[in-house]
Design a protein around this nucleic acid. Sequence first.
RNA 1: CGGGGCGUAGCGCAGCCUGGUAGCGCACCUGCUUUGGGAGCAGGAGGUCGCCCGUUCGAAUCGGGCCGCCCCGACCA
Length: 567
Amino acid sequence: MRVSKLFFTSLRDNPADAEMASHRLLVRAGYVRQLGAGIYSLLPLGFRVSQRIEQVIREEMDAIGGQEMEMPVVHPAELWKESGRYAKIGPEMVRFKDRGGRDMVLAMTHEEVVTDLLRDIVKSYRQLPAIVYHFQTKFRDEPRARGGLIRVREFVMKDSYTLDPDEAALDVSYQAHYGAYERIFQRLDLEAVVVGADVGIMGGSLAHEFMVLNDSGEDTLVICETGDYAANQQIAMVRKPEPPVEEPRPTEEVATPDAPTIAALAQLLGVGEDRTAKATFFTTGDGRLLTAIVRGDFEVNETKLSNAVKAIGGLRPAHAEEIAAAGMVPGYASPIGARGSTVVVDDLVASSPNLVAGANKHGYHLLNVNVGRDFTPDLVVDITNARAGDPCPNCGAPLVLRQGIEVGNIFKLGTDFTEKLGATYLAEDGSRRLIVMGSYGIGLGRALACIVEAHHDDKGIIWPATVAPYAAQLVTLSASRDPAVGEAAEGLYQRLTDAGVEVLYDDRDESPGVKLTDAELLGMPRIITISPRSLAAGGAEVTDRASGERSVRPIAEVEAELASAGR
RNA sequence: CGGGGCGUAGCGCAGCCUGGUAGCGCACCUGCUUUGGGAGCAGGAGGUCGCCCGUUCGAAUCGGGCCGCCCCGACCA
C-alpha cells in the first residue's frame, strides 16, 4: 500500500479529548476516528489490525473445535423476555419497535440467540459437545464511555458458546477455552492475568476474567504475589481476622454525641474500629431496602451484597427517608428494633462478640451488641471488600491491589438459559436433559487498544509483528533529488508485493522529518529507509522499531529477509 | 444520574469579561526553492462561531432553553 493513496491522515497535535496513550496514538496515527460517545470507526489501518487479531482468535478457536457462524445484531425482544433478561437488564440495552410495532432490541450478547438455535438444531446427545462462535457487533448503552477504545458502547466481540451434555463435559470445554485464551493473549503479546470473577448478568456458576494490568484499568484486582490467588475485587475473599473470644455481655446504651462515623465513634469510646458494627443501606432496583452490616474496619462490597440478596436491577445507596421509614437513624443505625429491611450481616460480624452498634436514637450507641442475641439477620454471608494488605485466603500472605482491563472472560452458564428457553436433548438412555452451556468473550477493539497500551513509546505505536497492519514501512528520503532512490524503492516495493509481503510504502514527497516521524508514529515493526545516503552506504537502512537498532544492508538482503519472515 | 469542563476552519487554539470587519499555528491547493528528523518564500481555498428563542440598531460575545463531547464519581459481562 502506498501512503500517498492510503485513506488516513496523521495528526501533528494530540486530540484534546484523548487521555489514554492508546486513544491518543490510535487517533493521531490515523487508525481510528470517533463518531459519537463510545462509537468509533476503524480506518483502514485500524481495520487491518483488527482483522489480524480476529485471525489469531479464529485459529485458536478452530483449534479447539470451534465452528464459526454469524448471528444477528437485531433481536426480537420476545427472546429476551423468555430468558428473563429483558426485565433484568436496565437501560444499557437499546430497545425499539420495528414498523410493525414489535419490540426489538440490539444485541448486547448472544446467549439467547444461540439457545434459540439449540431448540431447533440439537436433538440428540450425538450432536454434543459442540462449540460455536462468531465475531459480531454488540451494543451496550453504557452510562459512560471512556478511554478511547477501552470502554465503548458499540464494539465487535468474539463470543463463543460451548454446548455440552453435562457438567463434566462443560468442565472440559471450559478448560479448552481457558487454554485457548492463554494462547491467544500470548500470541497477541498481551500479558493477561487470570482472575476469578463475578458472573454478573450472565448468571452461572463460575467465571474467570483475563485481565491486562494497566494503571488506567477500571477493574481492581486482588492478587496474592505468591501466585496462589487472584480475583476481581468484586468477588475477592480474604482470610478474616480471628474475633476475640469473650462471653457476651449485657447491652448498654451510651451517649455518643457527634459520632455519626465509625472513626469518630471509635475515638470517642476509645475502642478499635474492629470492635464496632457498621450499618450501610442500599435499595435494590426493585425497591427492597437492604441493611448491610460489616465490621467497622471493613467496607461493604456491593457486588457480593447484590449477589447475596439476588438483587434485581442492581443496588444504589438508600435515601435517608427510606432508612428512616424502616425505623433506623442514619449515623446511629442498627437493625435492633428496626423492621422492613433485609438484614445482611457479614460473617465476621456474626462471630465477633460485644460490638458497638447504633441505638437508632440520635447521639446514642449500644455497647455489647451480639448478633443472634440482639437481632436476627436475614442472611449471614461474606460481604466485605478486600483491601490491600489483607491476608490471602489461601496462604495468608498480604494481598496487593492492581488495576486491570478486562480483555476476555469465560463463564460457566450451566443450564440457566437452556432451562428458561427449553433447549433439551435426548440422552443415550432415552431421558430428556438440558443442554449445559458456557459463554466466552473477547472484545477485539479493547484487545487492540490494550496492545497499544502495552506496546508504545513517546514516538508512537510499536506493533508486535503478529498484529502489525504491515510487516514494514518503506520510506524514501530525498527521492526527488536522486532518481535512483525512487527506482530502488519502487523496485523493492514491487518485488515484495509480488512475493506477498505486505509493506506500507511512503512514496510521498514530504520532508524527511515528516516521513520518519510518521513511520515511528504508525509503528510498523521495521522501517526501511532508502535515500541517497543509504544507497551510497550500500543499500537500505533497516530500523527495528522496538529496539531502535539500525543497519544499512544490501537491498537484496533486506528483500530476502522480509520475504522469509512471511508477511 | 451527581460534580466539573468544553463546543469558533480537518487538528490544536485565541477572540467572549467590556456587543460593531471572525483570527492564529499546523494541515490543505498553486508556483518556485529546499530535502536524513515535523523546511522557506509568494499566492490561494476553507467557518450556519453546536442548535433554538430572547435582549439589542447590531450577538461568536449578553440572557434563557436544548443538544453534543470530555473528565471525576455512581454504574458496568
